[in-house]
């Protein structure tokens, strides 16, 4: 087996207890939160026996620990249960929504890495006015909450200027195919991706700036400068290459934050992803869906971290994957 494969398998085994912990904690958190799904199903005024019947059907009459044992054993059989409200398997509901969320999150990630790394490097290398401007902007970007920013962007670009749609992922009423479909999705994606990316751009800029500044004080930079190569090459090839390692770490850690941001962003822009599904499900106490999304979410975060570990090995030859 190749060392990389061994490494991946070993890591995945290490992640199993983590996923288990996620399931336990989310199960308890969701259940300890106030509210009872039965009333949402049957209405506030349903009569006692009707409510009891509904409870029995959903298994909500059993003690909490028993419910938990049933849930866990189902999860390990790959069964996430049925949605209380939509009478569809939870897994199916979620899987349908994953591509939209991934599209949004990955686009935001890509944009923020690209812009953040370039802006951070320029801020570190140029110093002076460029640095001040970029650093100020990044502090502003970090401080703005997603939902507020989303609404402002929506008002400016969709309501006032009308250059982008108000929400959704595709234009309703058109049956676009191929390239046209692609363009339509991009058109709808622009505002939510921008909203989601802004915080990340700001944060990546800040991290990259600090990391490049640090790298520029290292001795090997002197060696590079003493060669007489252009300063841009010193900065990008020598300083940035070494500075990327902490930036990648941050990006990995940040997948979780980004998923949370996606919930808010999707809700504001009516983006048909896991985020808006989660928002609705929490509001309506649809426990199986909420739990299912948490489990899928944590698996995504874990995979992102695994990817970061592998990237480490590529970026830094001193690290041997173990």
């Amino acid at each position: 087996m190749s060392p990389l494969l061994v490494f991946i398998i070993r890591r995945l085994i290490q992640y199993i207890p983590m996923i288990l912990a996620v399931i336990i904690v989310t199960f308890l958190l969701v259940r300890l939160a106030p509210g009872d799904p039965t009333y949402i199903l049957v209405g506030e005024v349903g009569d006692e026996s009707f409510v009891r019947a509904a409870r029995e059907r959903l298994g909500l009459d059993k003690p909490l620990y028993e419910q938990f044992v049933i849930y866990i054993s189902n999860v390990f059989r790959g069964d996430l249960g049925y949605s209380y409200l939509r009478s569809e398997p939870v897994a199916k509901l979620i899987v349908e929504r994953i591509p939209a969320t991934l599209l949004l999150v990955l686009t935001a990630m890509f944009i923020s890495a690209l812009i953040g790394i370039i802006a951070g490097t320029i801020a570190a290398a140029k110093k002076g006015a460029a640095d001040l401007t970029l650093s100020t902007l990044s502090i502003v970007g970090i401080s703005i909450p997603y939902f507020w920013l989303g609404q402002i962007i929506l008002i400016i670009f969709a309501v006032w200027l009308g250059v982008f749609p108000l929400g959704g992922m595709i234009s309703v009423g058109h049956e676009y195919q191929g390239l046209q479909y692609f363009i339509d999705v991009i058109y709808h994606l622009t505002l939510p991706a921008m909203t989601l990316a802004i915080f990340n751009i700001a944060f990546t800029t800040k991290i990259t700036r600090g990391s490049v500044l640090e790298a520029l004080t290292q001795d090997y930079i002197l060696t590079a400068r003493a060669k007489g190569i252009p300063e841009s090459r010193v900065v990008f090839r020598h300083a940035l290459r070494n500075a990327l390692i902490p930036v990648v770490t941050y990006t990995g850690f940040n997948t979780g934050v980004l998923l949370v941001g996606a919930i808010l962003t999707e809700t504001v822009f009516a983006w048909p992803g896991m985020g808006s599904l989660l928002y609705d499900s929490i509001r309506l106490r649809d426990y199986p869906v909420v739990l299912g999304i948490f489990i899928y979410g944590s698996i995504i975060v874990i995979l992102a971290n695994l990817l970061v570990d592998i990237l480490y090995g590529i970026l830094d030859p001193r690290i041997r994957l173990r």
Binding site: D219, Y220, T223, A226, G228, H238, D316
Partner: peptide, 24 residues
């Protein structure tokens, strides 16, 4: 000055541990 460095004046540094780029 950049054209002088490396081309006409070369420099050897003190500490081989820190003066080489670790990722190149």
């Amino acid at each position: 000055m950049r054209k002088v460095r490396g081309r006409r004046i070369g420099m050897v540094f003190q500490d081989p541990m820190t003066f080489l780029n670790p990722v190149m």
